[in-house]
Simulated assay, not measured.
Amino acid sequence: MKSTDRKFTSTERMLNALDALSKPQHIAEWQGEGNSKHIFRRTDPPLLDWLREAIVSNMGGSGGGRQARERTPMAVGAFTLYEDIDGRIRSWMMEAGGTPIKAITPTQIIRSWYALWQTSNPTDHRRDAYSGIMEGWADAIRDNLDPPKKIEITAPCPICGQEWINIGLKLLDGQDDPDDVERVRTLIAVERDNINESYAICKACDKVWKGVGQMRWLRIAIDDADATKATA
């Protein structure tokens, strides 16, 4: 895990995002307790390869595949995510003047794209824009294949004021389908191993609070709202 004591340059941030998607990740973590505590080391595949392998495994490998009713929601979500990322990366390659060969994987294409894109002398602003997209892909892959802990926050959103939202299918007139609707809380906290990658999100207004500082602000805003309500 890289230190967060300093801010990465735009180039470093982009390379970190690129490497997470397209290079094996060497992981070292403590396991056990007391005298038996030790460092366990492993090498994880690039996130794009991990996603692809999960799809192939769940869909039935290279054979006839599983019937649709046997596929898990995770497999369907992973496939959709992979297709979206693959299409976007191939589009980037064409915009940079390259040809994304159909037979090669997104893992290979994105590194070739980066080498070609670099020749355009991109600004830090453009680097940050692409980095944000790739970081979003990395988070989405991790969330799909190794879902983080999610906690409902029992308070209204301090931005939009909504506490509950209906989710489910919509009728042609835009109203909720009464046969397929679920009422859920708007605020959800997502816990990651790296606390700076943890975040809260409002499903009603899409506001995101990421990292320790912003989530602390959210906690204070909720407490202030409760205090105001109690004295009203």
Rank of each mutant, 00 (worst) to 15 (best):
residue 3 S to A: 12
residue 7 K to Q: 14
residue 13 R to T: 12
residue 14 M to V: 13
residue 15 L to N: 11
residue 17 A to M: 02
residue 18 L to K: 09
residue 18 L to R: 08
residue 19 D to G: 06
residue 20 A to L: 14
residue 23 K to M: 10
residue 23 K to T: 14
residue 24 P to R: 01
residue 27 I to D: 06
residue 28 A to D: 06
residue 35 N to Y: 06
residue 43 T to D: 05
residue 44 D to K: 15
residue 46 P to D: 05
residue 48 L to K: 11
residue 49 D to Q: 12
residue 50 W to N: 03
residue 54 A to K: 09
residue 57 S to Q: 14
residue 58 N to M: 07
residue 59 M to A: 11
residue 60 G to D: 03
residue 62 S to C: 00
residue 65 G to Q: 04
residue 67 Q to H: 13
residue 73 P to E: 00
residue 75 A to F: 00
residue 77 G to L: 02
residue 83 E to Q: 14
residue 83 E to K: 13
residue 87 G to T: 12
residue 89 I to A: 03
residue 92 W to L: 14
residue 95 E to Y: 08
residue 99 T to Q: 14
residue 102 K to N: 12
residue 106 P to D: 04
residue 106 P to W: 06
residue 109 I to Y: 00
residue 115 A to E: 13
residue 121 N to K: 06
residue 122 P to F: 01
residue 122 P to M: 02
residue 126 R to W: 07
residue 127 R to A: 05
residue 129 A to N: 03
residue 130 Y to H: 11
residue 131 S to F: 08
residue 132 G to K: 07
residue 134 M to H: 04
residue 135 E to N: 12
residue 135 E to M: 11
residue 137 W to C: 07
residue 145 L to V: 13
residue 147 P to M: 02
residue 148 P to D: 00
residue 159 I to D: 10
residue 161 G to H: 12
residue 162 Q to D: 09
residue 162 Q to K: 15
residue 163 E to K: 14
residue 164 W to R: 14
residue 164 W to C: 05
residue 165 I to T: 15
residue 165 I to K: 12
residue 169 L to T: 15
residue 172 L to H: 04
residue 174 G to S: 06
residue 180 D to Q: 13
residue 181 V to M: 10
residue 181 V to N: 07
residue 182 E to Y: 10
residue 182 E to P: 11
residue 183 R to Y: 00
residue 184 V to C: 08
residue 186 T to C: 13
residue 186 T to M: 02
residue 189 A to Y: 04
residue 192 R to S: 02
residue 192 R to P: 00
residue 193 D to T: 14
residue 193 D to Y: 01
residue 195 I to A: 10
residue 195 I to H: 07
residue 203 K to Y: 09
residue 208 V to Q: 01
residue 211 G to H: 07
residue 216 R to K: 15
residue 217 W to R: 15
residue 218 L to R: 14
residue 224 D to Q: 15
residue 231 T to H: 01
residue 232 A to C: 03
